[in-house]
Protein backbone atom coordinates (compact mmCIF):
# COMPACT_ATOMS: atom_id res chain seq x y z
CA UNK A 1 0.00 0.00 0.00
CA UNK A 2 1.35 3.44 -0.89
CA UNK A 3 2.63 5.72 1.84
CA UNK A 4 2.07 9.44 1.92
CA UNK A 5 3.42 12.13 4.22
CA UNK A 6 1.26 15.19 4.78
CA UNK A 7 2.63 18.02 6.91
CA UNK A 8 5.13 15.60 8.42
CA UNK A 9 2.57 12.92 9.32
CA UNK A 10 2.80 9.62 7.48
CA UNK A 11 -0.03 7.25 6.66
CA UNK A 12 -0.47 4.14 4.54
CA UNK A 13 -3.54 4.22 2.36
CA UNK A 14 -5.22 2.15 -0.32
CA UNK A 15 -4.35 2.63 -3.98
CA UNK A 16 -6.28 5.41 -5.66
CA UNK A 17 -6.86 7.41 -2.46
CA UNK A 18 -6.69 11.13 -3.05
CA UNK A 19 -4.49 13.47 -1.03
CA UNK A 20 -7.57 15.00 0.59
CA UNK A 21 -8.94 11.64 1.71
CA UNK A 22 -5.57 10.65 3.13
CA UNK A 23 -5.33 14.00 4.93
CA UNK A 24 -8.78 13.50 6.43
CA UNK A 25 -7.68 10.12 7.74
CA UNK A 26 -4.81 11.89 9.46
CA UNK A 27 -7.15 14.32 11.14
CA UNK A 28 -8.46 17.86 11.20
CA UNK A 29 -5.08 19.53 11.67
CA UNK A 30 -3.76 18.48 8.28
CA UNK A 31 -6.99 18.20 6.25
CA UNK A 32 -7.34 20.97 3.69
CA UNK A 33 -10.74 22.69 3.47
CA UNK A 34 -12.99 21.56 0.62
CA UNK A 35 -15.92 23.52 -0.74
CA UNK A 36 -16.78 21.54 -3.85
CA UNK A 37 -15.54 18.01 -3.19
CA UNK A 38 -18.17 15.63 -1.78
CA UNK A 39 -17.33 12.03 -1.03
CA UNK A 40 -20.76 10.75 -2.05
CA UNK A 41 -20.85 12.60 -5.36
CA UNK A 42 -18.96 11.11 -8.25
CA UNK A 43 -16.73 13.49 -10.29
CA UNK A 44 -17.17 16.25 -7.74
CA UNK A 45 -14.22 18.39 -6.74
CA UNK A 46 -11.49 20.34 -8.43
CA UNK A 47 -13.49 23.51 -8.98
CA UNK A 48 -13.21 25.67 -5.89
CA UNK A 49 -9.44 25.40 -5.47
CA UNK A 50 -9.55 25.82 -1.69
CA UNK A 51 -7.95 22.43 -1.17
CA UNK A 52 -4.80 23.33 -3.10
CA UNK A 53 -1.70 21.75 -1.61
CA UNK A 54 1.96 21.66 -2.48
CA UNK A 55 3.46 18.34 -3.53
CA UNK A 56 7.09 18.75 -2.52
CA UNK A 57 8.01 15.21 -3.56
CA UNK A 58 6.12 13.44 -6.32
CA UNK A 59 6.86 9.86 -5.27
CA UNK A 60 9.71 7.54 -4.41
CA UNK A 61 10.08 6.68 -8.09
CA UNK A 62 10.01 10.26 -9.33
CA UNK A 63 10.90 12.56 -6.44
CA UNK A 64 10.54 15.78 -8.42
CA UNK A 65 8.11 18.23 -6.84
CA UNK A 66 4.98 19.07 -8.83
CA UNK A 67 5.43 22.42 -10.60
CA UNK A 68 2.14 23.93 -9.47
CA UNK A 69 -0.10 23.60 -6.45
CA UNK A 70 -2.55 20.75 -7.00
CA UNK A 71 -6.18 20.23 -6.04
CA UNK A 72 -5.81 17.63 -3.30
CA UNK A 73 -9.35 16.32 -3.79
CA UNK A 74 -8.58 15.17 -7.33
CA UNK A 75 -4.94 14.15 -7.08
CA UNK A 76 -4.34 10.47 -6.27
CA UNK A 77 -1.39 9.77 -4.02
CA UNK A 78 1.74 7.97 -5.16
CA UNK A 79 3.99 5.86 -2.98
CA UNK A 80 6.39 8.09 -1.07
CA UNK A 81 4.61 11.31 -1.92
CA UNK A 82 5.28 14.26 0.37
CA UNK A 83 2.64 16.93 0.67
CA UNK A 84 2.65 20.30 2.40
CA UNK A 85 -0.61 21.81 3.45
CA UNK A 86 -0.59 24.16 6.43
CA UNK A 87 3.20 24.04 6.61
CA UNK A 88 3.62 25.72 3.23
CA UNK A 89 3.34 29.54 3.15
CA UNK A 90 2.70 29.25 -0.59
CA UNK A 91 -0.41 27.15 0.04
CA UNK A 92 -1.71 29.45 2.76
CA UNK A 93 -1.21 32.45 0.49
CA UNK A 94 -2.96 30.80 -2.46
CA UNK A 95 -5.84 29.68 -0.25
CA UNK A 96 -6.23 33.20 1.07
CA UNK A 97 -6.50 34.31 -2.54
CA UNK A 98 -9.15 31.72 -3.31
CA UNK A 99 -11.21 32.78 -0.29
CA UNK A 100 -11.00 36.37 -1.45
CA UNK A 101 -12.15 35.35 -4.94
CA UNK A 102 -15.07 33.39 -3.52
CA UNK A 103 -16.12 36.36 -1.43
CA UNK A 104 -15.89 39.24 -3.90
CA UNK A 105 -19.26 38.43 -5.37
CA UNK A 106 -20.84 36.80 -2.34
CA UNK A 107 -23.52 39.11 -0.87
CA UNK A 108 -22.35 38.57 2.73
CA UNK A 109 -25.97 38.71 3.83
CA UNK A 110 -25.26 36.29 6.68
CA UNK A 111 -27.54 38.19 9.09
CA UNK A 112 -30.57 37.18 7.02
CA UNK A 113 -29.22 33.90 5.60
CA UNK A 114 -30.60 30.62 6.91
CA UNK A 115 -27.28 28.89 6.33
CA UNK A 116 -25.44 31.18 8.74
CA UNK A 117 -24.00 29.14 11.58
CA UNK A 118 -23.50 26.03 9.51
CA UNK A 119 -22.08 27.70 6.41
CA UNK A 120 -18.85 26.30 5.04
CA UNK A 121 -17.97 29.61 3.47
CA UNK A 122 -18.18 31.30 6.87
CA UNK A 123 -15.85 28.69 8.34
CA UNK A 124 -13.53 28.91 5.37
CA UNK A 125 -13.21 32.68 5.43
CA UNK A 126 -12.88 32.72 9.21
CA UNK A 127 -10.08 30.17 9.12
CA UNK A 128 -8.30 31.12 5.91
CA UNK A 129 -9.39 34.53 4.73
CA UNK A 130 -8.51 38.07 5.64
CA UNK A 131 -10.57 40.42 7.77
CA UNK A 132 -11.01 43.13 5.18
CA UNK A 133 -12.19 43.13 1.61
CA UNK A 134 -10.35 44.85 -1.20
CA UNK A 135 -13.14 44.85 -3.70
CA UNK A 136 -15.17 47.97 -4.20
CA UNK A 137 -17.35 47.01 -7.13
CA UNK A 138 -20.98 46.16 -7.21
CA UNK A 139 -21.60 42.50 -6.53
CA UNK A 140 -23.21 40.47 -9.26
CA UNK A 141 -26.89 39.70 -9.07
CA UNK A 142 -29.17 37.34 -10.97
CA UNK A 143 -32.77 37.19 -11.98
CA UNK A 144 -34.69 35.21 -9.41
CA UNK A 145 -35.81 31.71 -10.32
CA UNK A 146 -38.71 30.16 -8.36
CA UNK A 147 -38.19 26.44 -7.97
CA UNK A 148 -41.25 25.35 -6.05
CA UNK A 149 -42.53 25.52 -2.48
CA UNK A 150 -39.90 23.31 -0.86
CA UNK A 151 -36.52 24.63 -1.94
CA UNK A 152 -35.35 28.23 -2.08
CA UNK A 153 -32.68 29.18 -4.62
CA UNK A 154 -30.55 32.26 -3.91
CA UNK A 155 -28.26 32.43 -6.91
CA UNK A 156 -26.41 35.48 -5.56
CA UNK A 157 -25.00 33.39 -2.72
CA UNK A 158 -23.82 30.58 -4.98
CA UNK A 159 -20.10 29.87 -5.21
CA UNK A 160 -20.51 27.48 -8.15
CA UNK A 161 -19.23 24.38 -6.44
CA UNK A 162 -21.27 22.19 -8.83
CA UNK A 163 -22.35 19.88 -5.99
CA UNK A 164 -26.07 20.32 -6.70
CA UNK A 165 -25.36 19.69 -10.38
CA UNK A 166 -23.70 16.41 -9.44
CA UNK A 167 -26.68 15.47 -7.25
CA UNK A 168 -29.00 16.11 -10.16
CA UNK A 169 -26.77 14.03 -12.42
CA UNK A 170 -26.99 11.13 -9.98
CA UNK A 171 -30.69 11.21 -9.17
CA UNK A 172 -32.01 11.85 -12.67
CA UNK A 173 -31.31 10.19 -15.98
CA UNK A 174 -31.49 13.19 -18.28
CA UNK A 175 -29.08 16.08 -18.25
CA UNK A 176 -31.59 18.63 -17.00
CA UNK A 177 -29.69 20.51 -14.36
CA UNK A 178 -26.53 22.42 -15.00
CA UNK A 179 -24.77 25.68 -15.45
CA UNK A 180 -25.53 28.28 -18.06
CA UNK A 181 -23.46 31.27 -19.17
CA UNK A 182 -19.76 31.71 -18.70
CA UNK A 183 -17.23 33.25 -16.36
CA UNK A 184 -18.60 35.31 -13.51
CA UNK A 185 -22.02 35.26 -15.18
CA UNK A 186 -22.26 31.49 -14.72
CA UNK A 187 -25.51 30.48 -13.15
CA UNK A 188 -27.03 27.28 -11.81
CA UNK A 189 -30.06 26.81 -14.00
CA UNK A 190 -31.35 24.91 -17.04
CA UNK A 191 -34.59 23.26 -16.05
CA UNK A 192 -33.72 23.08 -12.38
CA UNK A 193 -37.46 22.70 -11.72
CA UNK A 194 -37.43 19.35 -13.52
CA UNK A 195 -35.03 17.99 -10.94
CA UNK A 196 -37.11 19.39 -8.12
CA UNK A 197 -39.90 16.91 -8.90
CA UNK A 198 -37.54 14.09 -8.06
CA UNK A 199 -37.94 12.32 -4.71
CA UNK A 200 -34.37 13.03 -3.71
CA UNK A 201 -34.11 16.63 -4.89
CA UNK A 202 -34.06 17.93 -1.32
CA UNK A 203 -30.50 16.70 -1.00
CA UNK A 204 -29.29 19.70 -2.99
CA UNK A 205 -29.97 21.66 0.23
CA UNK A 206 -27.70 19.43 2.27
CA UNK A 207 -24.84 19.42 -0.20
CA UNK A 208 -24.91 23.19 -0.78
CA UNK A 209 -21.97 24.60 1.19
CA UNK A 210 -23.53 28.06 1.32
CA UNK A 211 -27.04 29.48 1.54
CA UNK A 212 -27.79 29.27 -2.16
CA UNK A 213 -30.15 26.34 -1.71
CA UNK A 214 -32.11 26.36 1.53
CA UNK A 215 -35.15 24.62 2.98
CA UNK A 216 -38.29 26.69 2.43
CA UNK A 217 -40.14 24.87 5.22
CA UNK A 218 -37.48 26.13 7.64
CA UNK A 219 -37.10 29.57 6.12
CA UNK A 220 -36.61 32.40 8.66
CA UNK A 221 -37.97 30.20 11.48
CA UNK A 222 -34.88 30.19 13.64
CA UNK A 223 -31.13 30.69 13.62
CA UNK A 224 -29.61 27.23 13.48
CA UNK A 225 -27.70 27.72 16.71
CA UNK A 226 -30.97 28.09 18.59
CA UNK A 227 -32.03 24.62 17.47
CA UNK A 228 -31.06 21.27 18.95
CA UNK A 229 -30.03 18.47 16.62
CA UNK A 230 -31.26 14.96 17.38
CA UNK A 231 -30.47 11.77 15.51
CA UNK A 232 -33.63 9.95 14.56
CA UNK A 233 -34.89 7.33 12.15
CA UNK A 234 -38.11 6.03 10.69
CA UNK A 235 -39.05 3.20 8.37
CA UNK A 236 -39.09 4.62 4.89
CA UNK A 237 -39.50 2.68 1.67
CA UNK A 238 -37.54 5.24 -0.37
CA UNK A 239 -34.49 5.98 1.73
CA UNK A 240 -32.68 4.74 4.83
CA UNK A 241 -34.79 7.06 6.97
CA UNK A 242 -31.77 8.07 9.04
CA UNK A 243 -31.90 11.80 9.67
CA UNK A 244 -31.07 14.61 12.01
CA UNK A 245 -34.06 16.49 13.46
CA UNK A 246 -33.52 20.09 14.48
CA UNK A 247 -35.67 20.88 17.52
CA UNK A 248 -36.76 24.09 19.11
CA UNK A 249 -38.63 23.17 22.22
CA UNK A 250 -40.94 20.32 21.24
CA UNK A 251 -41.19 21.41 17.66
CA UNK A 252 -39.24 19.87 14.80
CA UNK A 253 -38.21 22.87 12.72
CA UNK A 254 -36.15 21.09 10.14
CA UNK A 255 -34.98 17.70 8.96
CA UNK A 256 -31.64 17.09 7.30
CA UNK A 257 -29.43 14.16 6.41
CA UNK A 258 -26.87 13.10 8.99
CA UNK A 259 -23.59 14.89 8.47
CA UNK A 260 -20.15 13.63 9.37
CA UNK A 261 -17.37 15.74 10.82
CA UNK A 262 -16.54 17.13 7.36
CA UNK A 263 -20.07 18.41 6.90
CA UNK A 264 -20.97 15.77 4.35
CA UNK A 265 -24.20 13.77 4.61
CA UNK A 266 -23.67 10.09 5.19
CA UNK A 267 -26.78 8.98 3.31
CA UNK A 268 -29.13 10.89 1.06
CA UNK A 269 -32.69 11.12 2.36
CA UNK A 270 -35.95 11.39 0.47
CA UNK A 271 -38.20 14.43 0.27
CA UNK A 272 -40.96 12.82 2.35
CA UNK A 273 -38.62 12.40 5.29
CA UNK A 274 -37.16 15.83 4.79
CA UNK A 275 -40.19 18.01 4.18
CA UNK A 276 -43.31 16.19 5.35
CA UNK A 277 -42.48 14.36 8.58
CA UNK A 278 -42.28 17.17 11.07
CA UNK A 279 -43.79 15.48 14.13
CA UNK A 280 -41.80 13.78 16.84
CA UNK A 281 -44.30 10.91 16.65
CA UNK A 282 -43.12 10.23 13.08
CA UNK A 283 -39.67 9.37 14.35
CA UNK A 284 -37.74 7.12 16.68
CA UNK A 285 -35.28 9.36 18.47
CA UNK A 286 -31.78 7.95 18.91
CA UNK A 287 -30.27 10.79 20.86
CA UNK A 288 -28.53 14.14 20.49
CA UNK A 289 -26.37 14.53 17.38
CA UNK A 290 -22.79 15.48 17.96
CA UNK A 291 -22.04 18.31 15.61
CA UNK A 292 -18.34 18.46 15.14
CA UNK A 293 -17.18 21.13 12.79
CA UNK A 294 -18.85 23.50 10.39
CA UNK A 295 -21.22 24.90 12.94
CA UNK A 296 -21.35 27.24 15.87
CA UNK A 297 -23.98 24.81 17.15
CA UNK A 298 -21.25 22.42 18.22
CA UNK A 299 -20.26 24.74 21.11
CA UNK A 300 -19.23 21.75 23.23
CA UNK A 301 -22.81 21.15 24.32
CA UNK A 302 -22.67 17.40 24.34
CA UNK A 303 -19.06 16.72 25.19
CA UNK A 304 -18.63 13.94 27.67
CA UNK A 305 -22.31 13.07 27.64
CA UNK A 306 -23.40 9.46 27.65
CA UNK A 307 -26.01 8.89 25.02
CA UNK A 308 -28.48 6.04 25.58
CA UNK A 309 -29.56 4.07 22.54
CA UNK A 310 -33.16 5.16 22.36
CA UNK A 311 -34.80 8.06 24.08
CA UNK A 312 -38.35 9.10 24.53
CA UNK A 313 -39.42 12.70 24.23
CA UNK A 314 -39.59 13.00 28.00
CA UNK A 315 -36.03 11.79 28.30
CA UNK A 316 -34.89 14.44 25.86
CA UNK A 317 -36.53 17.18 27.87
CA UNK A 318 -34.58 16.07 30.93
CA UNK A 319 -31.24 16.13 29.12
CA UNK A 320 -28.78 18.77 30.33
CA UNK A 321 -28.42 20.45 26.95
CA UNK A 322 -26.83 23.52 28.48
CA UNK A 323 -23.54 22.67 30.05
CA UNK A 324 -21.63 24.83 32.45
CA UNK A 325 -18.34 26.32 31.32
CA UNK A 326 -15.28 25.99 33.54
CA UNK A 327 -15.81 29.52 34.82
CA UNK A 328 -19.34 28.64 35.81
CA UNK A 329 -21.14 30.62 33.12
CA UNK A 330 -23.81 28.99 31.09
CA UNK A 331 -22.88 28.92 27.42
CA UNK A 332 -25.55 28.65 24.85
Amino acid sequence: MPKVTIDGKTIEVADGTTILQAARMLGKEVAPPAMCFYTNLKTSGGYCRTCLVKVSKGSDKDPRPMPKLVASCRTPIMDGMEVQNNTSPEVIDARKGVVEFLLINHPLDCPVCDQAGECHLQDLSYENGSAKTRTEFERRTFNKIEIGNKIQLHMTRCILCYRCVKVAEQITDGRVHGVINRGDHSEISTYIEEVIDNDFSGNVIDVCPVGALTDKTFRFKSRVWFTKPMSAHRTCDKCSGKVTLWYQGDEVLRTTGRKDQWGEVEEFICNTCRFDKKLTSDWTIEGPTIVDKHSVISANHYEGMIIPNELTLNDIKKLPLLEKNTDGNTEF
Binding site: V98, F101, L102, I159, L160, G183, D184, S186
Partner: peptide
Amino acid sequence: YHHESCGQCSPCREGTAWMEK
Protein backbone atom coordinates in the same frame (compact mmCIF):
# COMPACT_ATOMS: atom_id res chain seq x y z
CA TYR B 1 -10.30 36.73 -20.93
CA HIS B 2 -13.12 37.84 -18.66
CA HIS B 3 -15.58 37.15 -21.44
CA GLU B 4 -14.06 33.77 -22.28
CA SER B 5 -13.47 32.36 -18.80
CA CYS B 6 -15.62 29.23 -18.50
CA GLY B 7 -16.51 29.90 -14.86
CA GLN B 8 -15.61 26.49 -13.46
CA CYS B 9 -12.87 27.36 -11.01
CA SER B 10 -12.97 30.30 -8.66
CA PRO B 11 -9.64 32.07 -9.30
CA CYS B 12 -10.25 32.46 -13.02
CA ARG B 13 -13.99 33.08 -12.82
CA GLU B 14 -13.75 35.85 -10.23
CA GLY B 15 -10.20 37.04 -10.92
CA THR B 16 -10.57 37.81 -14.62
CA ALA B 17 -13.70 39.87 -13.94
CA TRP B 18 -12.03 41.69 -11.08
CA MET B 19 -8.94 42.57 -13.13
CA GLU B 20 -11.11 43.95 -15.89
CA LYS B 21 -13.05 46.10 -13.46
